[in-house]
Write a protein that binds this DNA or RNA. Structure first.
Length: 590
RNA sequence: GCCCCGGUGGCUUAGAUGGAUAAAGCACCUGCCUUCUAAGCAGGGGAUCGCAGGUUCGAGUCCUGCCCGGGGCGCCA
């Protein structure tokens, strides 16, 4: 799905600087060989292995064919042209087929600590989205029942994405779109009324086995009473509770109340309140709850339909109104307004997305489950036809969640209401673990929620806890320092050049990667990269913290101690910023 | 039948614009608590990156075909 507009290449300041130098050097080399064409699309990558330096550039290999020269020969020329790049580069080396490996001067890495500590909670933030209004629409579940794991994943994914984009300077609006009309809601009201009548003894409850094959085994009566529960009704226990609530408040006075009136409204109100409580508990706050009925009230549907008709993109057939999607390059037409006169979901969706742009959003991101994927091209094509810049609507699609317990997959069924809810799972594993698990995999892949791992009695197995403990350990250092009456250093007392151990340089390199990582994750709309980055950082920090045999953070050497405390504080800052973007809490003690 | 997403050690997964010896966690095996919280650390075994072709200096990554799993192809949302 290429639902994403092309974006400018974005780099962190440090890398940008180096990139410029290399750019100039390549230009110089080309001039030397009498080539004035454009530069090749070379890369400057963070080296995977320490022996390959800090960065590796592949420009020489790309130029080999063009200049008809040996790539290693070109690499040498390039290195000569590059020199020390104003003191940025400590060492350069030709390697393999023609890579130029670069070692940055240690002073550059080490002063990084000062940058991080000065920026604090802003380290890694950028301004690429400054002045741009961006909307993330997610969850958007109609109030027919509690949020399930699929919704939960979408909630965490959308919220983390919103946090990430806000961190990059966008003016982010979190929006929840819902409708409280339509067939689903009628079925909901019907289900509640049926349970209400059952509670009053006026109707029979259908036996559970009937639900397994509603076509054949559904009978009009059971145990001498009529069955009023719809075969496609909502079977969850929460429906019975809502019915009981009606009974408590109104007694049998609602027997003749239409299911589409009072019952539907009560159900909607109760369920929506619960959804909002769930979201609230997860730390997710929506800026806008947008009800589809607003579109009707403001005449947006009629306007959209009229606009489509004006372009001959809508026509009547079989008593319904269709969109001529085939004219927009899609494989078939679809119904906009049913024979009953009621619009399908498609028409309001089109009107809604036009409305998003009218409301001034520069970018619109729809987070949706894989089951809604088919829909997106139609909305996008129609919105484009109506004159909106549909390139600015992006789709972030996610697959579903499976649950593994005791090594086996837990069967979930909406029909039989045997699904696990977000509330139940959060109750089980806690918010932090829930959030981390839901965001740690890339969205377009399936997510297997390993309950055994998530609630393991040995918390050491749990990656979310692992990160939090890494963070808490930075406070452990601070507490220990206070205990031995060692004052925490001020910024000026931290001489970062004292950090020379390989494991310290590794940590610094990791810390330096963070801004680039944030940009990468933001522009790819993939918050899961944060989870992996944090795991890596914690995986360097824990051993460093633990290895008191080779180096201690708090030692007799005051200068070295201050430098290492500075490193600890920098690690804390980056862990905190990363965890905050994922919505995972940062305990100072565990 | 058509469309979308996946297929990477036993399991769950990272692998941005193609780059050097494919990376983690869990599980398994062996060590480490007079320590800055062992909620941790050190080390070990374990992968023909679904299959077959192609593109090129180079493919887990790009192209084509096929196989397997999931989702969709409603006048449901």
């Amino acid at each position: 799905m290429t639902a994403r507009p092309s974006k400018p290449i974005l780099r962190s300041p440090m890398r940008e600087q180096l990139l410029h130098k290399i750019h100039d050097a390549i230009r110089l080399v080309l001039t030397q060989w009498g080539d004035t064409d454009e530069l090749p699309p070379f890369t400057l990558e963070v080296s995977r292995q320490a022996e390959h330096g800090d960065f590796a550039c592949n420009a020489a290999m790309l130029l080999a064919k063009r200049l008809k020269k040996n790539p290693r020969e070109i690499a040498q020329t390039l290195m000569d042209a590059l020199g020390s790049a104003d003191g940025l580069i400590a060492r350069a080396e030709i390697a393999g087929p023609g890579f130029v490996n670069l070692w940055l001067s240690s002073a550059r890495w080490q002063t990084l600590i000062r940058e991080i500590l000065q920026a604090g909670e802003h380290y890694g933030a950028s301004k690429i989205g400054a002045g741009k209004k961006l909307q993330v629409e997610f969850v958007s579940a109609n109030p027919t029942g509690p949020l399930t794991l699929g919704h939960g994943r979408q909630a965490i994914l959308g919220d983390s994405l919103a946090r990430l984009l806000a961190f990059c300077g966008y003016d982010v609006t979190r929006e929840y779109y819902f409708n409280n009309g339509g067939r689903q809601m009628r079925v909901l009201g019907h289900s509640v009324k049926a349970r209400y009548l059952e509670l009053l003894g006026k109707a029979a409850s259908p036996p559970t086995e009937w639900f397994e094959d509603p076509e054949n085994r559904w009978q009009p009566t059971h145990c001498g009473l009529s069955v009023v529960f719809p075969s496609d009704g909502y079977q969850g226990e929460y429906i019975v509770q809502i019915a009981r609530k009606v009974l408590d408040q109104h007694g049998d006075a609602w027997i003749s109340e239409p299911e589409d009136q009072g019952f539907r409204l009560v159900a909607q109100e109760v369920i929506f309140a619960e959804i909002r409580t769930t979201l609230d508990r997860l730390g997710i706050v929506f800026d806008v709850y947008y009800n589809e009925t607003t579109l009707y009230e403001e005449g947006k549907l009629d306007a959209a339909l009229a606009a489509l008709r004006a372009q001959d993109l809508a026509y009547e057939a079989d008593g319904a109104v269709w969109i001529r999607a085939t004219k927009l390059g899609l494989d078939r037409d679809r119904v906009l307004v049913k024979r009953t006169g009621e619009p399908t979901y498609l028409l309001p969706d089109i009107a809604y997305h036009c409305e998003k742009f009218r409301r001034g959003f520069d970018y619109v991101i729809d987070v949706q489950g894989a089951d809604h994927i088919e829909q997106f091209p139609f909305v996008r094509a129609a919105v484009a036809a109506l004159g909106c810049d549909a390139e600015r609507i992006e789709l972030v699609m996610h697959q579903f969640v499976t649950l593994t317990r005791d090594g086996e997959q837990v069967k979930q069924s909406t029909r039989r209401a045997t699904f696990v809810t977000v509330d139940e799972l959060v109750e089980d594993v806690g918010i932090d673990v829930f959030r981390f698990f839901m965001v740690q995999r890339k969205a377009e892949g399936h997510l297997d929620f390993d309950l055994d791992l998530a609630k393991s009695s040995e918390w050491s197995k749990n990656p979310a806890i692992y990160l939090q403990y890494a963070y808490a350990r930075t406070y452990g250092i601070e507490r220990k320092a206070a205990e031995i009456q060692r004052a925490m250093p001020t910024l000026d007392e931290i001489d970062a050049t004292r950090l020379e151990l390989p494991e310290e340089i590794e940590l610094l390199k990791k810390l330096a990667e963070f801004p680039d990582l944030v940009l990468q994750a933001a522009r790819a709309r993939e918050p899961h990269h944060l989870a992996y980055f944090l795991r890596d950082l914690a995986g360097l920090w824990h051993p460093y913290h633990q290895d008191g045999k080779h180096h201690r953070i708090l030692s007799e050497d005051v200068g070295l101690t201050n430098a290492r405390i500075g490193l600890a504080l920098a690690v804390r800052t980056v862990l905190a910023n990363g965890l905050r973007l994922l919505g995972v809490s940062t305990p100072e003690r565990m």
